[in-house]
C-alpha cells in the first residue's frame, strides 16, 4: 500500500470544534501543513469559520481574516496586494470557503478575482450544501440529494464549478479528496508554486448533512472518486486536462447506498445518476485526449 507522506508541522491545533470525524477539518489540516507558516488565510462564513475560530481562540497557526461570505476572493485579493506592497510577495494568501461561499454567494467575487488572475490560492471545501446552517441545498448539491430545503430530493444538477473556472483560463484548477491525501498534498504544493489564481475544490462529505457514520468520510470520499462521481483531475490554463485517478471501478450505487440523503432513491433513479456520471466521465476523458 502507498504510505501517506507529508510533514505535520502543527498548523492546525487540536481542540477545534468540528464534528467528530469531520472531512473538512482533516482536509484543512492537510492544506495548512502543506502550505506552511508563510501564509495568510481569508475565511468566509462556513463550517471553516467555526473550525478556525470560535473567538477569542484560534485553531490555526497562520493569521486568518474572517470576512463576509460574498467577498472571500475579493478580500484575499486585497490582502495579497497589501502584502506585495510590503515586499512580502512570497507569502501565500489562502482563500478558504465552503461551497455556499463559492458556487453561490461568493461566485461574483471569485469570478472577478479569477478574471484579474489575482495571485491567490482559493480552496473550496465542498460539502454540497449549507451544512453549517442546518443543511439547506446549495447550487453544489447534487441531483436527487435530500437537504433541509429539498425534502423530496433536488431536482436540478450540481453546478459545474470546474467548467466555470476553466472558462476563466486561470493557470490551475484541481479537485481533491480526503481519501487521497498524497494527491491533495501534491496539488497544494503545485498550486503554491504557480503565480496567478489557483482553485482547489475538495469534496468533503458532511457526516450529518449526508447522513453517514462518524467513521465513514474517508470511505465515502474514496467511493466518490472510485465511482467517478467526483473524479480527481487538474486543469492547467483552463485547457489542459490531467486525470489523477484514471479508473472507474465502483458503481454509483455503492456510493449512494452509504448516504441517508440518497435513501429514497429507486433503482431507476440510481441508473439515471449512473448514466450522468458515465457521460461526464467520458466527456472528461475526451478533453484529456484533446490535450
Amino acid at each position: 500500500m502507498e504510505k501517506i507522506e507529508y510533514e505535520e508541522k502543527g498548523q492546525l491545533y487540536s481542540g477545534h470544534v468540528a464534528c467528530a470525524g469531520c472531512a473538512e477539518a482533516l482536509s484543512l489540516r492537510v492544506v495548512l501543513n502543506t502550505v506552511g507558516q508563510d501564509a495568510v488565510g481569508v475565511v468566509a462564513p462556513s463550517c471553516l469559520a467555526v473550525i478556525c475560530g470560535a473567538h477569542p481562540t484560534s485553531s490555526v497557526k497562520i493569521p486568518v481574516f474572517h470576512t463576509t461570505i460574498e467577498s472571500c476572493a475579493a478580500t484575499a485579493s486585497g490582502v495579497k496586494r497589501a502584502l506585495d506592497k510590503q515586499g512580502k510577495s512570497q507569502t501565500t494568501v489562502l482563500g478558504l470557503a465552503g461551497d455556499g461561499g463559492t458556487y453561490d454567494i461568493g461566485l461574483q467575487s471569485l469570478s472577478s478575482a479569477a478574471e484579474r488572475n489575482e495571485d491567490i490560492l482559493y480552496v473550496c471545501f465542498d460539502n454540497e450544501g449549507y451544512m453549517n446552517t442546518g443543511g439547506q441545498k446549495s447550487s453544489s448539491t447534487p441531483e436527487k440529494a435530500v437537504t433541509g430545503s429539498t425534502p423530496a430530493g433536488k431536482t436540478t444538477r450540481k453546478k459545474n464549478m470546474i467548467d466555470i473556472l476553466a472558462a476563466h483560463r486561470i493557470p490551475y484548477i484541481a479537485t481533491a479528496s480526503p481519501s487521497h491525501i498524497n494527491d491533495m498534498v501534491a496539488k497544494v504544493e503545485k498550486a503554491k508554486a504557480i503565480r496567478g489564481t489557483k482553485v482547489l475544490v475538495i469534496l468533503v462529505p458532511c457526516l450529518p448533512g449526508w447522513g453517514i457514520g462518524d467513521n465513514a468520510m474517508v470511505k465515502t470520499s474514496r467511493l466518490a472518486v472510485e465511482s467517478g462521481v467526483f473524479p480527481l483531475f487538474e486543469v492547467e490554463d483552463g485547457t489542459r486536462y490531467i486525470m489523477n485517478h484514471t479508473t472507474k471501478t465502483q458503481p454509483v450505487a455503492e456510493y449512494v447506498k452509504l448516504q441517508k440523503r440518497y435513501k429514497h432513491l429507486s433503482e431507476d433513479d440510481i441508473a439515471g445518476l449512473q448514466a450522468e456520471v458515465d457521460y461526464d466521465w467520458d466527456r472528461l476523458h475526451r478533453r484529456v485526449a484533446q490535450n
Binding site: Y13, S14, G15, H16, V17, A20, G53, A54, H55, P56, T57, S58, S59
Partner: peptide, 18 residues
C-alpha cells in the same frame, strides 16, 4: 484587541465529547 484571537484552541478539551 477584542478583534483578535488571543489563544489557541488547545485549551478546549474535545475528548469530553467522546
Amino acid at each position: 484587541s477584542f478583534l483578535w484571537s488571543n489563544s489557541t484552541s488547545e485549551g478546549r478539551l474535545t475528548g469530553t465529547w467522546r
